[in-house]
Amino acid sequence: MIRSILGALVLMALSLTGLQADDKKVVAITQIVEHPALDAVHQGVKDELAEQGYKEGENLTVLFESAQGNSAIASQIARKFVGESPDVIVAIATPSAQTVAAAAREIPVVFSAVTDPVAARLVESLDRPGANITGVTDMLPLEDHINMMLRIVPEAKRIGTVYNPGEANAVALVDQLETRLADRDMELVKAAATKTSEVLGAARSLVGKVDAIYLTTDNTVISAVEAVISVGERASIPVFAADTATVSRGAVAALGFDYYDVGRQTGAVVAKILRGEAPADIPVETVEKLSLAVNIAAADRMGITIPNAVIEEADEVLRETR
């Protein structure tokens, strides 16, 4: 009798253990490179999942790999994650999203910080993504960015940019920016950098050719943005950015998203899938909230003054000196 009871208890314990194991979710996160904006997305995803009841170390296992800016490594990571069969793969930034989408045919994929998921061939459309992938796009409000620059340097006619021509996200933005500037009788001067070690040389090539430098969310460039900042300071060329985190690194101003909030929004999409929704049925989400950040000391180092009206409107004002 006692043996029967003990046997039943053992079976019950094993059953409960198995149930808990089945209930534990696995989310794999990959990002193309580590820099403040993408790191903020990563943290936001995990924080949102925790708030929705998926807590790392309890009922959630999080796998993470960074490609360190190398597309070949990104492909290796994608294949590795597919082999581990997580419940969802989160791909941060366009290059990582493209490699994961190519490797993961059955596993749900959620991308984040992807500027143009349609042009990157990740989804069929924003409303109907199709297949096993959806996510959050950070398409930039380029008209607002041009207006921001002109409020601070109204005489600017030639805008320089450094970008990686091998990154679909960057190419799409640069093409749109060139068209929008041309509509205002302004010129875009482009400088290519296929890797971070080329960013400084590309920035130097703009000296004497441009009135200001504008940087998109190009991951290659943002990873080495201090190189561009140093050129702007030495040549008295104001540097503007699409990523507000770049302002604390020395840019004059940026009008952009809080990428931590982008991560939280992405985490909410992941939670929907963990609860059983199909990625194909979840429209790609956009980010609408913008914040303006300015750096008064950086402007002084680059030889300009930010108008008081712009400073008063800013959500974040940095006055640091180095």
Rank of each mutant, 00 (worst) to 15 (best):
N132D: 03
V199W: 02
A224G: 02
N219S: 08
M149S: 01
A168Y: 07
D218G: 07
V174G: 02
G160S: 13
Q176V: 12
L188S: 10
E226Y: 14
K195H: 10
I146N: 01
T216N: 03
I159C: 05
K195N: 13
V162C: 08
R128N: 14
L140T: 02
T137S: 15
E226T: 10
V225Y: 02
N147H: 14
S205R: 14
E187P: 10
R180I: 09
S125K: 08
M149G: 04
L126Y: 13
N164H: 05
I213H: 04
A182H: 11
T216C: 05
I159R: 03
V199F: 07
V221H: 05
L173K: 06
K209Y: 09
R128Q: 15
S197Q: 14
L142E: 09
N219L: 00
P165M: 04
T134D: 06
S223T: 06
A193H: 01
V207N: 11
V123R: 01
V221L: 09
Y214N: 04
L140C: 03
I222H: 01
I152G: 13
E143I: 05
R184T: 08
N164P: 06
N169A: 09
R204V: 01
I152V: 14
A170D: 07
V207M: 14
A182C: 03
G208M: 10
G135F: 00
T137D: 08
Y214C: 06
N219D: 01
L181A: 05
V199M: 10
R128W: 10
K157H: 10
T179D: 14
L188C: 08
R128D: 11
N132T: 05
K157N: 07
T217S: 13
T220H: 06
T216P: 05
G160V: 07
I133L: 07
V174P: 00
G135V: 01
K190L: 10
T196M: 14
V221N: 06
E143Y: 06
I146V: 11
D175I: 09
L181K: 00
L142Q: 10
D185A: 15
V199N: 07
D185V: 10
S205T: 11
L142T: 03
V189A: 07
I152R: 13
A202L: 06
H145Y: 09
D144N: 09
V225D: 00
G201F: 01
R204A: 04
E187Q: 14
V189Q: 03
M139Y: 00
E124Q: 15
G201S: 09
N147S: 15
D218W: 02
M186Y: 11
G130C: 08
L188N: 06
A172S: 15
G135C: 05
E167V: 10
M139N: 03
A131P: 03
G166M: 03
S205E: 12
D183G: 12
V162Y: 00
V174K: 03
D144S: 14
V199H: 05
A193L: 02
A193G: 04
N132G: 02
E124W: 09
P165S: 05
D211F: 07
E226D: 07
L188I: 07
R151E: 11
D127Q: 12
H145A: 11
S223F: 00
L173W: 04
P154R: 00
L215G: 01
S197V: 12
A156D: 08
L173T: 05
N164A: 08
L188F: 12
T220G: 09
